[in-house]
Design a binder for these strands. Structure first.
Lengths: 355, 355
DNA sequence: TGCCAAATAGTTAACGTACACTATTTCGAT
DNA sequence: ATCGAAATAGTGTACGTTAACTATTTGGCA
């Protein structure tokens, strides 16, 4: 039985196409790139030859010759002390660049303040003015996002959203997690780890600089799971950010609800986890989001039981490679790419730290 | 604030190096490829110029010129009705090939029977005879693996293991899961989902065609977790493969152990899951391995609670890309690449199905 | 019919590298 | 000092594509 060789015997190039169509390579290239200046008849012959011989362009040679550069603008919130989350994307960008930069793909990272529409607008202005070959962005502010999309729609420049999505717009694609499903997953998992009659608390730290759409979706998914189960669900929301206040609030809930067994933290799990004493901790399970360093420590010392990763690095990596697929390989792009919802716990955290 | 441009202004080629070292491109190329025929003095000058200017070879041009092909032999067990697991790798191989085949990397898939050393030996003979530029293999049989390694060690041909590892050999690298840690993870998760005093059953279907080293490691990790916890652990092993026998065996254990709450299935979870009635199922949790279609169905209908994925597609994909890194990019390769231990349940299975 | 612009087709020079081939230099032996 | 082989350095072509440039054909109009 002969081994399954995956190589094509003899690669056919534009020369072979030209020969088969009885023309020189000039018109072939024109047809391939829709550059016009080819009579209808020969155009047909060339297209037929391409079909017959199964031409696949040699991207190496193509790239070598036309050293056209593609610059992707990356519109991403600034990582801060409070929200270090956005730092994680960088390793993904770097990794992707290693693979695609030989093909002339560069990125310009344009950061903005997540709670400051003016700073976002400034970046959009910049992007519109400078003219990029692709936009990879977190669509935080609706109106400005629309403005950007409208400008680039006519230019046929790919705009891909990541992290959070605004459905129904003219962006080429979205890459990220399904927030609602992640909430549903958290509920499913929490349900497994507490007793049938235990109560559940949904907690969150609300900050103006956060992306509320995503958080609502998480909660919605979570509640969907428990709909009609008779499970008692409590709610705690802090918008002070003050440790004392949070601590008191949580303690009060604990005292008032002896049957509390699970906590689902929509956002700011480090703050919530800090508000709980180890003595209290042994009585409930806590699940939340984001594999940032602080949370990883809390997971390791047992203050948090489960984290759901949004895989920022992977979003960044795959996102940039989507531009490579689209711009260089001319592959079709799906309207959305949902990354797996990874469940991370103490026993497998080390395998998720650097990816 | 200017955007962080990641592009290099002007790429340095061998021409620039030659100029700086006061030679023509000929000797530069000779130095770059250690082809000799260069005097020590000019060699030094050239190396210095390379260092000074920070030369990075243009892999596109390089590849275009020398259309040297690399063929990787993939030694992988044959997928069968009983063990469809090995089918999953194919999509990973295909995906990887799409990216690396422009660089001249091909693969030859050589399958063997997992429980038949002779068939393995045949493939090893083939590999030794035909001469490959890289070997990607599951080292199922020790002696033959050694034989292969010894032959290729002198030739400096990269041999990478995947799926299961034999430590301490001269292979370049390993990519796969850490089986022991996966067992530990399963224990940790199961511990979360059952009550403090529940008993646990470790079950497995032993078949001669299986990889026992991996299974032992899983069990070892599992037991490590429960060491000194006082948890009562039972054991069920079937080596008949007969449905009736398994069913009876499992039933007997259920009857004899009313406190049984969790089942860890080392291998053959579909068989074990089938042996349990829905009525019994609601009293325990079941965790096991392999995202094969049969198991996915069982997960969906609730017969299985958790599956740990070995990510065969990712192993295949990343493995082939390792050869690309090594052969084309000349990047250093780590001795092992452990993939994340993914926890899959009903609520997130759909995100794991096609990757 | 002849002329000329427009349309179409053909030619060629790179892109950066690899490597075979040719040219030059070095240096020991006479 | 001269010759010539060995060692070293330089040259040129090709890889497949792109796109500018040149050559040819077409066809409308006087």
């Amino acid at each position: 039985m002969p081994p399954l060789k995956t190589s094509s015997n003899k690669s056919i190039g534009i020369k072979e196409i030209a020969e088969r169509a009885n023309v020189s390579i000039g018109p072939v290239d024109k047809v391939l790139h829709n550059r016009g200046g080819v009579s209808k008849a020969t155009r047909e012959r060339i297209l037929q030859a391409i079909k017959d011989l199964g031409y696949t362009p040699n991207i190496l040679a193509s790239r070598l010759k036309s050293s056209r550069d593609y610059t992707i603008a990356v519109l991403i919130p600034e990582a801060t002390e409070i929200i270090p989350f956005w730092l994680a994307h960088n390793t993904g960008f770097e990794e992707a660049l290693k693979e695609v930069s030989p093909f002339g793909i560069n990125i310009s990272i344009l950061t903005f303040e997540q709670n400051n529409e003016a700073s976002f607008k400034l970046r959009v202005d910049e992007v519109l003015h400078d003219g990029y070959d692709g936009i990879f962005m977190v669509p935080v502010f609706y109106d400005e996002t629309i403005r950007l999309l409208q400008h680039y729609k006519d230019l046929n420049v790919p705009v891909i959203f990541f992290d959070s999505n605004i459905p129904g717009l003219s962006n080429l694609s979205f890459i990220g997690n399904n927030s609602k499903d992640s909430g549903y997953l958290a509920a499913n998992l929490l349900d497994y780890t507490i007793s049938k009659k235990g109560d559940i608390l949904i907690a969150s730290i609300e900050r103006k600089e956060d992306n509320h759409i995503q958080f609502s979706a998480r909660e919605e998914g979570f509640l969907t799971y428990f709909k009609n189960t008779g499970r008692r669900i409590l709610r705690f929301t802090d918008n002070t950010g003050n440790e004392q206040t949070i601590s008191k609030g949580i303690s009060a809930i604990f005292n008032d609800n002896p049957h509390l067994e699970g906590i689902f933290v929509v956002n700011g799990i480090d703050k919530i986890a800090a508000a709980v004493t180890p003595a209290q901790k042994c009585n409930y399970r806590m699940i939340g989001y984001d594999l940032i360093e602080k949370n990883i420590q809390l997971l390791k010392n047992g203050a948090i039981d489960f984290l759901i990763s949004q895989q920022p690095q992977k979003q960044a990596y795959q996102g940039i490679k989507l531009f490579y697929d689209y711009l260089i390989l001319k592959k079709p792009i799906a309207p959305s790419y949902y990354l797996p919802l990874d469940i991370v716990m103490k026993a497998n955290i080390d395998y998720y730290r650097f990816l």
